[in-house]
């Protein structure tokens, strides 16, 4: 464990807290992509299958349960609970996620670490997480303006994997035979997708005023 990875996990937890507060207190899922939340639920449920046999630390196992529970709760609330379910707009939030899941599944089959079924599923979840934010970014693009809390949610989510990139660099230089090309590649793609958002987020927050984030 190093500070980058710890801060990355804290940023990830923060993103869950912000989103859960927004949809439970704000009673609205407007501006939130259910598609992206469904992809995250698939990512965590598939990646953390090893909960049952790979006990590397209490910290890991605890957060795996937390991430599966939170992502499932978010999908449940937006999909089934009133009044949030009425604030979700299927016409706007209509990114064809099958075009994300399909290629990631093929990639997981072909490029993985150990050729066992779990490793294929694990690689699938890594690739899927890299592109899972796309429906959310497309939704924000369509709306042009980003609600304040949503912008903090997306920023925390982008920061989490950005901090993980630093964690991988740190581990590469401090641990011998540390090699994780799959997560390095996917994590770089994932963080890259946020660059444009971060630019607009920074511009809007720079003045100290919480001017809304505008996407062109």
């Amino acid at each position: 464990m190093n500070i980058f990875r710890f801060l990355g996990d804290m940023s990830h937890i923060l993103s869950f807290v912000i989103l859960l507060l927004k949809i439970t207190q704000g009673k609205s899922a407007a501006g939130i992509s259910l598609r992206t939340q469904e992809l995250y639920m698939i990512v965590f449920c598939s990646r953390y299958l090893d909960l049952f046999w790979n006990f590397s630390s209490l910290y890991n196992s605890f957060l795996k349960v937390v991430f599966i529970a939170c992502s499932s709760a978010i999908v449940y609330i937006i999909r089934f609970k009133s009044p949030q379910k009425d604030t979700w707009n299927p016409e706007l939030d209509n990114f064809p996620i099958q075009y994300l899941i399909g290629p990631c599944a093929v990639a997981g089959l072909l490029i993985n670490q150990d050729w066992t079924p779990f490793e294929m599923i694990w690689a699938f979840s890594i690739y899927l997480e890299a592109v899972a934010i796309l429906p959310q970014l497309f939704l924000l693009q369509k709306q042009g303006e980003v609600e304040n809390l949503t912008s903090h949610y997306v920023a925390a989510l982008g920061a989490y994997r950005g901090l993980y990139l630093m964690n991988w660099v740190y581990r590469y230089f401090t641990e011998d035979d540390y090699l994780q090309r799959i997560v390095w590649f996917a994590g770089t793609v994932q963080t890259g997708l946020y660059i444009d958002f971060f630019y607009h987020y920074y511009q809007s927050k720079r003045g100290g005023l919480s001017r809304p984030v505008k996407l062109p």
């Binding site: 990875r5 090893d50 150990d114």
Partner: peptide, 10 residues
């Protein structure tokens, strides 16, 4: 001693 799994990250 369980094999230290390559997946020690979240």
């Amino acid at each position: 001693q369980s094999k230290p799994s390559a997946h020690d990250e979240l």
